[in-house]
Design a binder for these strands. Structure first.
Length: 290
DNA sequence: AAAGCGTGGAC
DNA sequence: TGTCCAAGCTT
């Protein structure tokens, strides 16, 4: 089963969100920033951070010059701060090695820190209008349902996923809009939890034709958070973001008192990730400001 | 290749 | 309240 591009594109023109990074005036670097921020993070939370971010640092070189600590602070509580660290590293590479211009080809994009299979293609497609398949979790779900008649996508398999979407992609000129529309359909209508099939613009859907069979996948392991090292890392980083310079170890101790061993482990992993540095005097700081 | 990595809104 | 999940990447 295939997807008619005209009905999908008509729906997108009518119902698609007016997201700021979709504006034609937005440059490739700013699109890259949006894609990194959107990794595993809802649009609503990215919106205000991205808007302030690109106003402050419109280019890769401006971001690189800001330094990793300020970038980590501006990232705020978007989550997964390793993304912010890598985004700064990415800015350094783009500014230094690519003349402050984001590469246009997927292969080169893939070499950038924090840029993987999805983000590389998203930038090539949305910033440079290339007809490459852009496969995120939304697209995988829409294809699983509309094309394969299954409630959920299987485990990610890049080669097969790209091939699946490649056969759907229309003519070059509309490919970027088609990919944006596919993602938008997954985000707004063909959602994970409660798909709104009554609002679906697609006239053909293998999942519907099959009678909406439920998922046969084994239940996913719950992603625990409370009391994990992740939460402790978040607390420790919170302290350092709020401070404007290095803090003594006791300040970090106070951020997690229930389990000192866990706190030490979290701090060690932050140091290993380069998200925290130890100063000459044995205090702790965000990278580059000790 | 499975696991680790933040955070908060919705139900 | 607890569970699910949101434009993934890296090792």
């Amino acid at each position: 089963m295939s997807i008619r591009s005209t009905e999908l594109l008509d729906w997108y023109d009518r119902a698609g969100r007016d997201l700021p990074w979709r504006d034609p005036s937005v440059n490739a670097w700013q699109i890259l920033v949006s894609e990194i921020m959107l990794q595993q993070t809802p649009v609503a939370r990215v919106l205000p951070v991205w808007t302030a971010w690109v106003a402050r640092w419109p280019t890769a070189s401006a971001t690189a010059a800001a330094g990793p600590a300020e970038v980590l602070r501006a990232w705020g509580k978007l989550g997964y701060p390793r993304r912010a660290k890598r985004l700064h590293e990415c800015a350094v590479v783009v500014a230094r090695d690519h003349g402050d211009t984001v590469p246009a080809d997927v292969e080169t994009l893939l070499e950038l820190p924090g840029v993987g299979a999805y983000t590389a293609r998203a930038v090539a497609c949305f910033a440079y209008r290339q007809p490459v398949p852009v496969v995120d979790t939304n697209v995988r779900r829409v294809v699983a349902r509309a094309v394969h008649g299954r409630a959920e996508a299987g485990a990610p398999a890049a080669t097969r996923d790209h091939a699946d979407v490649s056969v759907l992609l229309p003519d070059d000129a509309v490919a970027p809009r088609f990919s944006a529309a596919l993602m938008e359909l997954g985000a707004l209508v063909c959602t994970a939890r409660s798909p709104d099939c009554g609002q679906c613009p697609l006239s053909s859907c293998a999942w519907r034709d099959a009678g909406y069979p439920p998922s046969t996948a084994p239940p996913r392991r719950v992603q625990r958070y409370a009391g994990t090292d992740r939460q402790v890392r978040g607390r420790l980083l919170d302290v350092l973001r709020a401070a404007d310079s290095a803090v003594p170890g006791t300040a970090l101790d106070a951020a997690w008192t229930v389990d000192a061993a866990q706190r030490d482990r979290a701090l060690a992993s932050l140091l290993a990730d380069g998200l925290v540095e130890r100063t000459r005097t044995g205090w702790y700081a965000l990278p580059g400001e000790g």
